[in-house]
Amino acid sequence: MKTVNYKLIELFFLFVLIPISFTINYLPILKLSIGVLGFVYVLYVLFKVEKIQFKIRKDIHWKDFWRTTFLKFLVIAIVTTLFVWFTDNDSFFNVVLHKPIKWLLILFFYAAFSVYPQELLYRTFYFKRYKNLFKNERLFIFINAILFSLAHLFFKNSIVIAITFIGGLLFAITYNKTKSTFLVSIEHALYGCWLFTVGMGSMLGFPT
Rank of each mutant, 00 (worst) to 15 (best):
residue 77 A to S: 10
residue 76 I to A: 08
residue 206 F to S: 00
residue 130 Y to I: 00
residue 125 F to L: 04
residue 118 Q to E: 12
residue 144 N to D: 08
residue 109 F to D: 04
residue 81 T to E: 13
residue 201 G to P: 07
residue 98 H to Y: 02
residue 178 T to E: 09
residue 199 G to N: 05
residue 158 S to D: 09
residue 165 F to V: 01
residue 90 D to F: 05
residue 118 Q to P: 08
residue 64 D to C: 07
residue 99 K to G: 00
residue 149 S to A: 15
residue 96 V to F: 04
residue 207 P to L: 00
residue 95 V to A: 05
residue 103 W to M: 11
residue 170 L to Q: 08
residue 155 F to W: 07
residue 38 G to I: 02
residue 43 L to D: 04
residue 106 I to T: 14
residue 4 V to A: 01
residue 198 V to H: 01
residue 182 F to N: 04
residue 126 Y to N: 03
residue 87 T to F: 07
residue 24 I to A: 08
residue 97 L to W: 00
residue 119 E to M: 08
residue 147 L to C: 03
residue 98 H to G: 01
residue 27 L to W: 10
residue 19 P to E: 09
residue 122 Y to S: 14
residue 71 L to P: 06
residue 140 F to S: 01
residue 123 R to F: 12
residue 197 T to H: 04
residue 16 V to H: 08
residue 176 N to W: 02
residue 194 W to D: 05
residue 97 L to Q: 04
residue 191 Y to P: 03
residue 172 A to D: 05
residue 135 K to R: 10
residue 190 L to K: 08
residue 85 W to V: 11
residue 18 I to K: 02
residue 91 S to I: 05
residue 37 L to A: 15
residue 87 T to S: 13
residue 139 L to T: 15
residue 191 Y to W: 12
residue 76 I to Y: 09
residue 169 L to F: 15
residue 166 I to A: 13
residue 49 V to C: 06
residue 204 L to A: 09
residue 101 I to S: 04
residue 10 E to F: 03
residue 79 V to C: 10
residue 57 R to H: 14
residue 110 Y to I: 07
residue 127 F to L: 01
residue 84 V to E: 04
residue 19 P to Y: 09
residue 42 V to M: 13
residue 140 F to L: 00
residue 106 I to Y: 14
residue 180 S to Y: 02
residue 17 L to Q: 01
residue 130 Y to A: 01
residue 25 N to W: 13
residue 36 V to W: 13
residue 57 R to Q: 13
residue 193 C to K: 10
residue 172 A to P: 07
residue 73 F to N: 10
residue 91 S to D: 10
residue 45 V to R: 12
residue 125 F to I: 07
residue 201 G to V: 05
residue 171 F to C: 07
